[in-house]
C-alpha cells in the first residue's frame, strides 16, 4: 500500500472561531431579505417572478422557458424527416441502460413499406420512468440517432404502471428530428 499524505489547510485563529464567516453568511441572507422586501430579488430578474425570494415559485411558475439548452430530461424516440421510425430495435440502449429502464421488443418492418430496407423496427419500446436516471447513455450508444433526452422534467405518474411509457408515447414526446440518416435509403 502506498501512502499519500493529504495536505490539510492551515486555519488561522479567525477561521477557527468562525464567527466572521457566520456573520458574512447572515449578511447574504439579510441581503436577500431586503431585496425581497423591495421586490427586487433574483427571482424577479431570472424567472419573471414577483420578486419575492431567490427561488422560483414552482409550480405557479415553470422552468420551461428557463431551461438551459443542455438540460437533460426524459428520454424519447424520434422519427426522421421522412417520418421513418429511426429506431431499428438493436437493443443497444436496453443493454447499456444502467438502471435497466428500457425494454425493447424487436419486430419487423412490413416488406412493402417505404422504409423496408431497414427491415427491423421495434414492435414495442418501453421506458420505465421510475427507473430512468437521466444519464443519457441510451442517447450516447444509439447507432441510429433514434433516442434523445428531451427537456421534459415534469413526470408525475400516480402509479407504477403509468410511469412506464410505451412506444407511442415516446414517439409523441420525441417528435421529428432534422438531419437525414441516409443509411436505410432505398438507393444507398
Amino acid at each position: 500500500m502506498a501512502y499519500i499524505p493529504v495536505k490539510r489547510p492551515k486555519f488561522s485563529i479567525l477561521d477557527r472561531i468562525y464567527v466572521v464567516e457566520l456573520v458574512r453568511g447572515l449578511g447574504i441572507t439579510l441581503k436577500h431579505l431586503v431585496l425581497s422586501l423591495l421586490g427586487k430579488s433574483r427571482s424577479k430578474k431570472d424567472f419573471n417572478g414577483a420578486g419575492i425570494g431567490a427561488c422560483m415559485p414552482f409550480p405557479e411558475q415553470r422552468w420551461d422557458d428557463h431551461l438551459p439548452s443542455y438540460y437533460r430530461g426524459a428520454p424519447a424516440l424520434v422519427r426522421g424527416e421522412d417520418g421513418r421510425e429511426r429506431c431499428v430495435s438493436c437493443q443497444l440502449c436496453e443493454f447499456i441502460c444502467p438502471a435497466r429502464a428500457i425494454r425493447v421488443v424487436p419486430g419487423s418492418v412490413a416488406p412493402g413499406s417505404s422504409c423496408s430496407k431497414q427491415e427491423k423496427a421495434p414492435a414495442e419500446f418501453e421506458i420505465d420512468m421510475l427507473r430512468c436516471i437521466y444519464c443519457g447513455m441510451c442517447q450516447e450508444v444509439c447507432p441510429e440517432q433514434a433516442i434523445f433526452l428531451s427537456q421534459q422534467y415534469l413526470i408525475t405518474p400516480t402509479d407504477r404502471k403509468q410511469a412506464v411509457r410505451n412506444k407511442e408515447q415516446l414517439y409523441r414526446l420525441g417528435g421529428i428530428r432534422k438531419g437525414l440518416i441516409h443509411k436505410w435509403n432505398q438507393f444507398k
Binding site: 430495435s89 438493436c90 437493443q91 436496453e94 424487436p106 419487423s108 427491415e119 427491423k120
Partner: peptide, 9 residues
C-alpha cells in the same frame, strides 16, 4: 430466431 432477441442477452 429472426429479430427475436440480441444474442448478448
Amino acid at each position: 430466431f429472426r429479430f427475436k432477441m440480441r444474442v448478448w442477452f
